[in-house]
Amino acid sequence: MPKEVMTRQAADNVYLHKDFHGALSRGIDYLHQQFGAEAVREYLWQFATAYYAPLKEDLRRRGLVAIQEHLERVYRTEGAAIQCTRTADELRVEVAACPAVMHLRSQNVPVAELFHETTRTVNAAICDGTPFAAELVAYDPATGRGIQRFYRRPS
């Protein structure tokens, strides 16, 4: 049987490996089992504070439009649409179905019990140290359907 060779350059493909959602879900489950729920939140807070530092700075500088643009880009990349309603002091984001949760369900990969913290805690950490705060108003663990709210903290 002849040798088979496959050579690819980065530009040959689009970077979108949805199975990574499964690795994250497993990671969250592992932290939950080994170290407890608070460790999941602590890890996600630390990650979000470090990784989204440029977004936090953009939020301070431009306000809630920075969050809206970020979330629209993220969900569009994953092939999902979101509905955003924004004023100067509040941004409401409606997600019909979370593409991460839907991918996990389609692959029969378990969705971590605390998977919603990848939204709730991450959003809160992004807003920490800015004039804004975040809350996860509604969330359906079956589909990831939910409502995220960002708002200016009362002075």
Partner: peptide, 11 residues
């Protein structure tokens, strides 16, 4: 949601 395109830094 942490996008799969943001997974590597999360990992």
């Amino acid at each position: 949601m942490i996008s799969c395109t943001e997974f590597i830094p999360a990992y």
